[in-house]
Amino acid sequence: MRRNGRLSIAAVCVAAGLVGGGIWWSVSGAPHTAQSLPLMPLTFTHQDHGAFNCLVCHHNYTEPKLASWPFQHCIECHKKTPELAPIIERQFHQQCEGCHLKLKREKRASGPVRACHVCHAEERPPRF
């Protein structure tokens, strides 16, 4: 009976270890692969966002040190800067979805919230 008890505890510990490891790997975002992961296609139209201040997104205009930065394209800079690469998904989702959600809660016209395929589509030709 004592042997069975030890086996049970060992089984529970192994299961807990596997689950804990899986959760840690999942939550940590596996940073070693984040930089090499190809981005999903993304479409963004300036025309739809004309009512908003450019600086809401283009923060590099007000930060002098970024003026001489080698990457001036939003995604390129965030993807190639080692500190930003692992959190690029979270940052951009918070930026775009957060703003859309805020408008939706105010019952105003807003962009998509949690509808991945609307933003993550092949880029359409510019409308202006």
């Binding site: 899986g22 959760i23 999942s26 975002g29 596996a30 992961l37 692992p86």
Partner: peptide, 13 residues
């Protein structure tokens, strides 16, 4: 598949 969205991986788990 990791590491895109942790919420999906915990759901799969």
């Amino acid at each position: 598949w990791p590491p895109v969205l942790p919420v999906m991986q915990t759901g799969v788990l």
